[in-house]
Design a protein around this nucleic acid. Sequence first.
DNA 1: GAAGTTATTATACACTTGAATAATAGCAGC
DNA 2: GCTGCTATTATTCAAGTGTATAATAACTTC
Lengths: 204, 204
Amino acid sequence: MSRRSFYRAPEGERRQDLIEATLDCISELGLKGATVRQIAVRAGVTAGLVRHYFESKDQMIAEAYRSVIASLTDKAKNVEGDPATRLKDFIAINLTEPVADSRSVSLWAAFISQVRVDPALAEIHREGYLAFRNALQDLLGDFLAAKGRPASTEVCRRHAIAINGLVDGLWIEGCLAGDLFREGELISIAMAAVEALLDLPVEE
Amino acid sequence: MSRRSFYRAPEGERRQDLIEATLDCISELGLKGATVRQIAVRAGVTAGLVRHYFESKDQMIAEAYRSVIASLTDKAKNVEGDPATRLKDFIAINLTEPVADSRSVSLWAAFISQVRVDPALAEIHREGYLAFRNALQDLLGDFLAAKGRPASTEVCRRHAIAINGLVDGLWIEGCLAGDLFREGELISIAMAAVEALLDLPVEE
DNA sequence: GAAGTTATTATACACTTGAATAATAGCAGC
DNA sequence: GCTGCTATTATTCAAGTGTATAATAACTTC
């Protein structure tokens, strides 16, 4: 009667593994299916270890949510180049894998559904949304200025709200039922819509 | 030692009560919190009754989802009047209570998060989305024709996809963090955006 | 290589879960 | 009122839940 052998992982690595396993469970089995035991199996450890790294299962899930938000927003916030290119890339990135895939939207929805239940998640959502929208707002300000049509903060804010809504809505549908659209169709629709909203060509 | 007294309800009524109680639980406690016992408490019955009306808890939840989708789409699909009024109302209805409230978006998100887990829910979502988008597409066709700018099915389809995405995205944010926007601001932004997308005034 | 630290395993606990079953009481028809 | 049907309650069950605890083995330090 002997114990299984194991590897003593560095703290950061193990925490990351546990969070990743948590997200796998949530996306494939739903929040209900993300039990401590199932998460442990996927992370290749035993259930007790979870409590060694996190105060509670709920706290681990909140951290997992933070990492989802970060993965959804980081790529789009770090676009580079001239304003027109950045705007174009911003849209394309959000409507292309890996941001746009069914795993992402599953995770996102699972957490959104808990926003009313857990105020901590509500706060995380709010921060993520505002950071994302403000990045877009700055981007739009730069773009309009570069095109010789500088706009007030208020105008940029309204444009950012609308375009953010548009991109979010298309992102969701693309993730949930991508087969309803042709290859690249959502990006093309989004690009045309942004041009109409701003009354300016984005692509040359 | 006596049993509690009870009322023998007509089948339709009791089923409706159970579904309503299920939705209350999901929106307030999350899918995890929607246990057979908790649902029974809210419906004012004992847990065993659930299985008398539904084959399983999962089947009851799928039916509950159907009723959510219906409540979200029915109001918007039944707009009346001339095309411009219908288009205006379509947008306003989707961004105003009771369609736009935190309970609705919680329920919607809870089900979306299960789409990957349960193919039955995926099918229900797909049907709901297409019915909604097609209603919008017809509406846009009528509107453009009435304004003397008749458009092809394909053009209407692209407009419907974009406007549907826009409205969905704004709906979600309005529900989740309504306090980030001024009274009526989302409707005003949506209306202006639709006018820009169609290059036509919606309001006189 | 021995000693000490602690990440990890193993096990146990109290509680909740969805479901099955049997008893019962509300109500319709006579 | 009595009878019969069945919607509803009450109880039970096995499986699964998050967490607490103690034993242990992997690794560090000297």
